[in-house]
């Protein structure tokens, strides 16, 4: 695993997508995340690193998990964190995206975390304002902090990313989590296998540089890491698969499927999980699942991102 001296390699102003980061920057972020993990274990879970800094969580689509994770991360760094959701702001009154960004920027926050249903929204925001922009998930495009917390989880459990076999199963077509992880894992030279019904895989899946299969048993064979993606019920209405029942028949991670993996495999899921659909309860609650570690690491990684972007001083 990388050394501590590499941790400050990430000096970017914004965090938009994993494809923008070098392998060293990714390693630096992972290490900073691992070091921040300890803060959350303390009785007094607060360091003064970002005292006097303001972070706005600007959420154009509903999210409990990511918003809460960013909020806790900011507060543990002593930043002032303000949450704005689309339903509670002028967005619903017809204000354009550009005007919303300009107005919030005019209040001079140090960083804006943006969650949006439109791919590219965070990138566009970063072109509108001088304020730091952190992408909290934009449509099916990117979710860099999720990928970073996933990598941090892998880094803690596995020795090396080089030639690590990582399998991602589920709705690749609509998944920002998959795209961000694929980009990051490629930078770190992991071997990637993607598994989905053809209707949930983009036609040009060759761009991912991954092995592609529709057979979950083949997909997880020899895997060191298996990432399951959440399947959304609304995709049935779009004619992409017939029923949750049939989806589960071919793509659910069950103890039977698990027989194909390596013994020390870790099972990941960005949450929230659909028990019995993409993952069986036995697997989700089993000793190979690291799903709740991911949630814990989410706070640490977002502390690392906010800390490096907002230029705090870690004077504990």
């Amino acid at each position: 695993m990388p050394t501590a001296t590499e941790e400050l390699n990430f000096t970017g102003k914004n965090l938009i997508r994993m494809a923008d980061l070098t392998a060293d920057e990714i390693r630096g972020l992972i290490n900073t995340g691992l070091r921040f993990k300890e803060v959350s274990e303390r009785e007094i879970k607060k360091v003064p690193a970002l005292r006097g800094k303001t972070i706005v969580n600007l959420f154009f689509e509903p999210s409990t998990r990511t918003r809460t994770s960013f909020e806790i991360a900011g507060k543990r760094l002593s930043a002032d964190v303000i949450n704005i959701s689309a339903s509670a702001s002028s967005i619903s009154k017809g204000e354009t995206f550009k005007d919303t960004i300009l107005n919030i920027s005019a209040m001079k926050p140090n960083a804006i975390v943006i969650r949006h249903s439109s791919p590219g929204a965070a990138l566009i925001a970063s072109q509108i304002t001088d304020c730091s922009i952190i992408n909290g998930g934009d449509g099916a495009h990117a979710h860099p902090t999720q990928a970073l917390l996933d990598l941090m989880t892998i880094a803690e459990k596995k020795k090396n990313f080089e030639n690590l076999n990582v399998t991602i199963v589920g709705d690749i077509l609509h998944s920002r989590v998959a795209r961000s992880n694929i980009n990051a894992l490629r930078s770190l030279n992991a071997n990637i296998t993607l598994c989905a019904p053809p209707t949930l895989m983009p036609p040009r899946s060759d761009v991912f540089g991954a092995k592609i299969t529709t057979d979950i048993k083949k997909a997880v064979k020899g895997a060191d890491v298996v990432m399951m993606l959440r399947i959304q019920q609304e995709r049935m209405g779009q004619g992409l698969f017939p029923s949750l029942r049939e989806y589960a028949r071919y793509f659910c991670l069950t103890p039977e499927v698990m027989k194909e993996t390596k013994d020390d495999v870790i099972i990941m899921h960005p949450g929230p999980i659909n028990r019995g659909v993409e993952i069986s309860s036995e697997v989700a609650d089993g000793n190979k699942a690291v799903i709740l570690y991911q949630v814990t690491h989410g706070v640490a990684m977002r502390m690392a991102v906010l800390y490096l972007i907002c230029g705090g001083t870690k004077d504990e």
Partner: peptide, 15 residues
Amino acid sequence: NEGEVSARFGIKGIP
């Protein structure tokens, strides 16, 4: 266009 860019960036494609 539904193609390489739509696949890479998760943008809805027009085939």
